[in-house]
Design a protein around this nucleic acid. Structure first.
Lengths: 187, 187
DNA sequence: ACCGGTTTTTGACAATTGTCAAACAGCTTC
DNA sequence: GAAGCTGTTTGACAATTGTCAAAAACCGGT
């Protein structure tokens, strides 16, 4: 749990009250590789902090498995659209490695937002951070070539290459597995 | 100003105090088509609500002009990354039509966030909404063909086709002007 | 070390999209 | 109405990426 608060307090220094309230609703979960954290086409009720492990957010497009996002230690995982809109979303989340997670239920988080201004602030900053990350990935996808995108991934998350099967990396980058394989062959 | 609050209160019902505090720092601006709202490679200090008009967020990639975002009446415009990180960003913003805007300065907004919990909440919800929009556009770019993306734009913002030059629409969709022209030729 | 499965690479070919250049259309201005 | 400007379309060709199929490499379990 220290790891969770260490991360969170990079955004906001929480009051003692807020920290305790938050601690009381965090649920620790230890889950095996392959576990389906969130079923596709369902509502995402939890946001997960990853203390250890690796998650993959994915969906199916024309029968093909597409990797939407990858989250490793010290980051958060959820189906953003579903969590925020309370609507089912085609995205599912699975564990690519054995994991230790801290889950926070939407309803509990809403209560915390209402009671504690500093947690509302934390929420705003976390969403802001997510928006910045998505914008950067969007820019990358928008006007970089496949090879450049691969390089960006190597720079920002080098361990993913070792930890995630090639096909998943490929669809994460918006290309096919074969194309990625060829990019790698040319160094 | 009513238009601004009408929009804002679709997210949160503000207290009288909050509304007044916010009203006191909003700055009305009437600006002509072609005006550069935000210079490239500078820090974005304002978020703008568009009462009337159309803005284009753009940057240069390998010497080519790329349209990053388009915002019309009743929505907001700013360089999200720069506004949130306080760092210069390559994105600039220009007006594609004569416009009536309401500008809100970052420092003023920060003060409002500190004093008023409900405005902090509004900020969280606005960023969340932005995140959802960007995610949807990202999904579109990630695994839809150019023709499908054009159709999506036609469905969600049909007026853009009339109001924005083709070359800008094309780079917004992540394709060249010529490709878009050919897509249109096939109905 | 061998088997059976999965993951990755390679090959041949097709489809999509980009590039460069020129033609065309619509508007404004003189 | 001609000249000039901007925005759009078209053509020929090249480059990139996708598709389908098969081979090769890798890995865990026995």
């Amino acid at each position: 749990m220290e790891k969770f608060f260490a991360r969170v307090e990079q955004f906001v220094q929480l009051s003692k009250d807020s920290r305790e309230a938050m601690a009381s609703v965090l649920r620790r979960m230890e889950l095996p590789k392959g576990h389906l954290l969130l079923k596709q086409d369902s509502v995402c009720h939890y946001i997960y902090f990853i203390e250890e492990g690796l998650t993959r957010t994915f969906y199916y497009k024309d029968g093909k498995d597409v990797t939407d996002w990858l989250s490793a230690e010290d980051t958060f995982a959820c189906s953003i659209i579903s969590f925020l809109t309370r609507q089912p979303d085609r995205r599912g989340i699975e564990l690519l490695e054995d994991a230790v997670l801290w889950g926070l239920h939407y309803d509990e988080l809403e209560k915390l937002y209402k009671h504690y201004h500093d947690i509302e602030r934390l929420g705003r900053l976390l969403v802001s951070f997510g928006l910045i990350q998505l914008q950067q990935r969007f820019d990358d996808l928008h006007f970089a070539t496949a090879a450049q995108r691969y390089k960006t991934l190597m720079d920002t998350n080098p361990t993913f290459i070792q930890r995630v099967p090639l096909g998943m990396i490929a669809s994460y980058l918006g290309i096919t597995q074969e194309t990625l394989s060829r990019i790698r062959a040319q160094h």
